[in-house]
Design a protein around this nucleic acid. Structure first.
Length: 865
DNA sequence: TTAGGGTTAG
C-alpha cells in the first residue's frame, strides 16, 4: 500500500502515516518473551501468556521511546503492546467521531466509598446547613452555623466531611466558606494542607477549576499547599475539566519543587489524557515515566488508560490493555468492563461488546445502569435501534433502575427519530420516578423538534425550559441557533445569539462549526468564511468538522465562479496572531444574521450565493494540510459528494488526481475507479472497503453512498455497482435484499440505482434457473438518504424514473408511497423478454486501456435514468 | 485518582 507519489509541499509527515506499512519485527528477544516475576501474584508468571503473545508475532516498535523496561523488569512499557490498529490507513481517516471532550464530562458525580471518620456533630451541621440554604446563592448562614458548632466539631476529619458532602450537593460556595473558616482556626500546616487538598478536589469535581486553582495558589503562598496531595488534587481538577495541558504544567511545577509524584498523581495525569483527548501516545509516555520512577500501576491506572483508548477510538489497544491487566494479575472491576465496552462500542464492535457483556457475570461483575447506557448508545449509533430499545426492557427485567442518563438516552433516541409521543412519555415516566427533566433532556427535545422543522414546538419548549428555571447552556444555544439558521429564521437565530452573549457564555469550536454548517447548507459560503476568520481570531481553532462543512458547500451548483475573496480567506496560510477583543461592532455573527434577516424580509435573492466550483476544494484541502488538520473519511465523502454535484468530469477527475498527492490510497481508489482503471486499483479498493467496515454504520454507508453516487453520476455505472455490492457484502446497509424485497432506504440515489440493477439481475438468474419468484415483489425506498426529512422523496423519484425507463412492471404501492411492488408473474415475464438483459447490464463510460486512451461506449447503449 | 447521556461533518 505504499504510495507511489510522495506527498507534496510538505515538511511535516502528517500524511505519510497513510502509506506506511506495518513493521512486523520478529525479535525473539522481545521483552515480553522474557517476563519473569510479577509483582502482584507470584503465580501469574506461571500462567500462559495472554493470547496476543501466542497468536501474534511479537509486535513492532511504536512511537514512544523509553528505557523503562530496563529500569523496571516487572512491568514493561506499553510501547511493547501490539500496534493499536491493523489498518494501513491512518487513524485520522477513520476518525474519532467527537471533537469535543470537555462538555462530555459530567460534573458533580458524588464521591463515594471513602471511610470517613467524622462525628455525628458534623452530620448535624451538614443537615442544618442544607436545610437553611437559600435560593439566592447566599451562603453566609453557614458562617454563624459553624461558629455555633466549632466546639463540637473535632478537627480536620469533620471539616473535610462537610466539604465533601457540601460538594456532593453542589454547594460549592458554602463549601468555600466552610473551608475558609476551618483553615483560619487551624494552626497546624499539615492539617491546613489536608483541608486545602480536599477543597481543591471538591471544586475540581464540580468543574470549578479556576476556583480550585485559587485555593491552591493561596495555599502555596501561605505555606501549606506544597504537598503531593494538593498538587495531585489540582492535576485531577484540571483533568476533570479536560485541561490536559494545564495538568501537565502543574505536574512539571510539582517536580521542579522536588515533590515526588505518587500513584495518585500519575493516575490523575493519565485521566487528564483521556478527558482532554490527548491521545494514547502521551498517556503511554506518562505510564513509562511512572514505571521509570518505580511507581507500580494499579487497576485505576489501567482503567484510565482504557478510557484514553475509548476516547480516541483505539479499540485494538484497549483490548490489548485488557489482556495485559489479566496477564499481570490486576483485577478488573465494573469500571474496567464498562470502559472496555465503551471502547468496543465506539470502535463499532457491537458484536464483541455483547460478547464481553455476557462474560461479565462469570467474573462476578454484574452489568449496571452504566453498562446498559453504553450498550444502548452503541446500538443506537450503529443503527440497531430495535436492539437499543430491547436493551431497555432487558434492563428493567434485570431489576436495574433507569437513572437520569438512561432516561435521557432513551428519550434522545425517540426524539432523534421524530417519535415525539414516545419521547415525551419517557420524559413523563422519568418525572414520575422523581427525576426532573434537565438541560440534557430539553436539548434532546429541542434538537429533535428542530430537525423536523417544528419551530413553534421549539420555541414552546425553550420557554418551558426557562420556566423550570433550567439554565440553557452552550449546547442549547448552539442547537437553537443552528436550527433557526437552517430554517432561515435568522431573526430568531440572532435573538438567541444575543441572549447567549448576554449570559456571558463563550462560543467554542463546535458552536462555530455548527453555525458554519448551517450557513453552508443555506449556500452562504461567504458568511461561513467570515466566521472561520472570526473564530480563528478569537483563538478558537477550526477542526476537521469545520472544514468538512465548508467542503460540503462546494459544488452545490457548478455554474458560478468563486466569489472574489472567499477562497483567499479560506485558504490564507497564516491565521491572525492577534486575538480580537470582543465587542458587538466586531461580532460577525450578529452582522451576518442582521443582514440575512433584512434580506429575508424583502425576499432577496439569497439563492444566488449558492454555487462554488469544486476546484476550490483543493485550496481548502491545502489549507487544512497547512494547519495540520487531518482530513478523514467524512472529508472524503464530502469531496465525492461535491464531485457528484459537478457536471464537469474534467474538473472532478483533476481534483481527485491532485488529492492523490495528499493521500494516494484513498483518493487513488476514487480517482482510479472514476477513470475506469478498475483492475489497477481494485485491490486497494478492497482494503479501503475493509477499513471502512470498521467504522460505525452511518459513516460507512455515507462513504459507499458518496462513492457510488460519484461513479454513477459520471457514467461509471458498472464500477458503481461493484462498489455497492462490496458494501452490501459488508453489511453496510442492513437487510438489503431477499428474493421478494429490496430495501433501499439509507442509500443514495446512485447506490440505490446500481443496487436495483444488481438485484434484478439476481432475480433474473433465479428465474432462468427455473425457480418461481415470490408472489409479491417489493422495492422499498423509504425517504431516501435523508430519511429524517419528512417529505423528501428524491430517492423515490429517482427509482421510479429508473424502473419506468427499463420498462420494469413495478408500480407505486397504494398504501405506501415509498414502496414499489409487482407480482412475481409480471416480473418473470418481463425478465424473460429479449431486450431486458441488455437494459439490466450496466456499463462504464470510460475504460482505461493501459495507455491514456479513453474508450467511450457508443451512445446507442445508453440506458435512460 | 477510574465508567455511561446532550452538539458538528454524511
Amino acid at each position: 500500500m505504499a504510495s507511489s507519489t510522495p506527498p507534496p509541499l510538505t515538511t511535516t509527515k502528517s500524511y505519510q502515516n497513510h502509506h506506511l506499512p506495518h513493521h512486523h519485527h520478529n525479535h525473539q528477544t522481545h521483552p515480553h518473551n522474557h517476563r519473569q516475576s510479577v509483582h502482584h501474584h507470584q503465580w501469574t508468571s506461571l500462567k500462559k501468556p495472554p493470547p496476543r503473545h501466542a497468536a501474534k508475532p511479537p509486535p513492532g516498535p511504536t512511537t514512544t521511546t523509553t528505557t523503562s523496561t530496563s529500569t523496571n523488569p516487572n512491568f514493561p512499557s506499553l510501547s511493547s503492546l501490539p500496534p493499536s490498529t491493523k489498518s494501513d490507513l491512518s487513524a485520522d481517516f477513520s476518525g474519532r467521531r467527537s471533537t469535543r471532550f470537555v462538555s462530555k464530562l459530567h460534573f458533580g458525580r458524588p464521591k463515594t466509598g471513602f471511610a470517613s471518620r467524622h462525628t455525628s456533630s458534623a452530620e448535624e451541621a451538614l443537615h442544618l446547613a442544607i436545610r437553611h440554604r437559600s435560593d439566592d446563592n447566599n451562603s453566609s448562614h453557614i458562617d454563624s452555623l459553624l461558629l455555633n458548632f466549632q466546639h463540637k466539631l473535632s478537627g480536620t476529619d469533620d471539616y473535610t466531611f462537610l466539604l465533601r458532602e457540601l460538594g456532593n450537593r453542589g454547594e460549592y460556595s458554602m463549601a468555600m466558606r466552610c473551608f475558609d473558616f476551618a483553615v483560619r482556626r487551624e494552626r497546624r500546616r499539615n492539617e491546613q494542607g489536608k483541608l486545602a487538598s480536599t477543597m481543591i478536589s471538591v471544586l475540581g469535581r464540580l468543574g470549578k477549576v479556576d476556583l480550585a486553582r485559587k485555593v491552591f495558589d493561596t495555599a502555596v503562598v501561605e505555606g501549606y499547599g506544597n504537598t503531593v496531595y494538593a498538587y495531585s488534587a489540582l492535576i485531577s481538577a484540571y483533568a476533570k475539566s479536560g485541561c490536559c495541558d494545564e495538568s501537565i504544567k502543574v505536574f512539571e511545577t510539582m517536580k521542579s519543587c522536588n515533590l515526588k509524584p505518587n500513584l495518585v498523581t500519575y493516575n490523575a495525569l493519565i485521566d487528564a489524557c483521556g478527558k482532554g483527548g490527548a491521545g494514547f501516545d502521551l498517556a503511554s509516555e506518562i505510564f513509562d515515566e511512572m514505571l521509570g520512577n518505580g511507581v507500580q500501576p494499579d487497576r485505576i491506572t489501567f482503567n484510565s488508560l482504557l478510557a484514553v483508548c475509548s476516547g480516541v477510538g483505539l479499540w485494538e489497544t484497549a483490548r490489548n490493555l485488557f489482556s495485559e491487566m489479566v496477564y499481570r494479575g490486576i483485577e478488573q472491576d465494573i469500571y474496567t468492563y464498562n470502559t472496555l465496552l465503551d471502547a468496543a462500542c465506539s470502535g463499532g464492535q457491537m458484536d464483541v461488546a455483547f460478547e464481553i457483556m455476557s462474560e461479565m457475570p462469570t467474573k462476578h461483575i454484574l452489568p449496571n445502569e452504566v453498562t446498559y447506557s453504553i450498550m444502548i448508545r452503541g446500538c443506537a449509533k450503529a443503527g440497531r435501534l430495535d436492539k437499543a430499545l430491547s436493551l431497555f426492557n432487558e434492563m428493567k427485567f434485570a431489576g436495574i433502575n433507569l437513572d437520569r442518563v438512561s432516561y435521557n438516552t432513551l428519550l434522545a433516541i425517540y426524539a432523534s427519530l421524530g417519535r415525539f409521543e414516545e419521547a415525551l412519555s419517557v420524559g413523563n415516566e422519568m418525572e414520575s420516578m422523581g427525576i426532573k427533566k434537565d438541560v440534557v433532556t430539553y436539548n434532546a427535545l429541542l434538537d429533535g423538534y428542530g430537525k423536523q422543522g417544528k419551530y413553534d414546538k421549539v420555541k414552546e419548549l425553550f420557554s418551558e425550559m426557562k420556566g423550570e428555571r433550567l439554565s440553557p447552556n452552550l449546547l442549547t444555544y448552539s442547537t437553537l441557533i443552528s436550527v433557526y439558521s437552517k430554517g432561515g429564521l435568522y431573526k430568531d437565530a440572532m435573538e438567541v445569539y444575543n441572549e447567549f452573549k448576554q449570559k456571558g457564555l463563550k462560543a467554542d469550536v463546535v458552536f462555530y462549526s455548527k453555525l458554519i454548517d448551517a450557513l453552508c447548507k443555506k449556500g452562504l459560503v461567504e458568511s461561513s468564511a467570515l466566521l472561520l476568520d472570526e473564530m480563528t481570531e478569537k483563538g478558537i481553532q477550526p477542526n476537521v468538522v469545520t472544514y468538512n462543512s465548508i467542503i460540503n458547500a462546494f459544488g452545490q451548483s457548478a455554474t458560478v465562479e468563486c466569489p472574489d475573496g472567499i477562497i483567499e480567506s479560506l485558504v490564507q496560510s497564516s491565521p491572525s496572531v492577534f486575538f480580537r477583543e470582543e465587542n458587538d461592532e466586531d461580532d460577525s455573527i450578529i452582522k451576518i444574521f442582521d443582514e440575512l434577516a433584512a434580506e429575508n424580509s424583502c425576499h432577496s435573492k439569497q439563492d444566488n450565493r449558492i454555487g462554488q466550483e469544486i476546484s476550490c476544494i483543493l485550496g481548502v484541502f491545502q489549507k487544512m494540510h497547512n494547519l495540520r488538520i487531518k482530513p478523514n473519511v467524512v472529508t472524503f465523502s464530502a469531496i465525492l459528494n461535491a464531485c457528484s454535484r459537478c457536471n464537469s468530469f474534467e474538473e472532478a477527475s483533476m481534483l481527485l488526481e491532485e488529492l492523490r498527492l495528499f493521500d494516494n490510497q484513498v483518493y487513488g481508489v476514487a480517482h482510479g475507479l472514476l477513470m475506469g482503471q478498475r483492475e489497477n486499483v481494485w485491490m486497494q479498493a478492497l482494503s479501503l472497503f475493509d477499513e471502512v467496515k470498521q467504522m460505525d454504520s452511518s459513516t460507512a454507508s455515507a462513504f459507499y453512498n458518496a462513492l457510488t453516487d460519484m461513479l454513477w453520476h459520471f457514467g461509471q455505472r458498472q464500477g458503481a455497482q461493484l462498489v455497492v455490492l462490496e458494501g452490501k457484502q459488508r453489511h453496510v446497509w442492513e437487510n438489503t435484499w431477499s428474493d421478494s424485497c429490496l430495501d433501499l432506504h439509507l442509500m443514495s440515489s446512485g447506490a440505490a440505482r446500481a443496487m436495483v440493477h444488481a438485484w434484478l439481475l439476481n432475480i433474473r438468474s433465479v428465474v432462468f434457473e427455473g425457480q418461481e419468484l415470490p408472489k409479491l415483489l417489493s422495492i422499498l425506498t423509504g425517504w431516501g438518504k435523508h430519511s429524517k426529512v419528512v417529505g423528501d422523496g428524491t430517492l423515490k423519484r429517482a427509482i421510479e424514473t429508473l424502473l419506468v425507463g427499463m420498462g420494469a412492471p413495478f408500480r407505486v404501492a397504494q398504501c405506501n408511497i415509498g414502496r414499489f411492488t409487482s407480482t412475481g408473474a409480471l416480473v418473470t415475464a418481463w425478465l424473460r423478454e429479449l431486450g431486458t438483459l441488455k437494459v439490466l447490464i450496466l456499463h462504464d463510460d470510460r475504460k482505461y486501456t493501459g495507455t491514456a486512451t479513453l474508450e467511450l461506449r457508443p451512445p446507442f447503449q445508453t440506458i435512460p435514468l
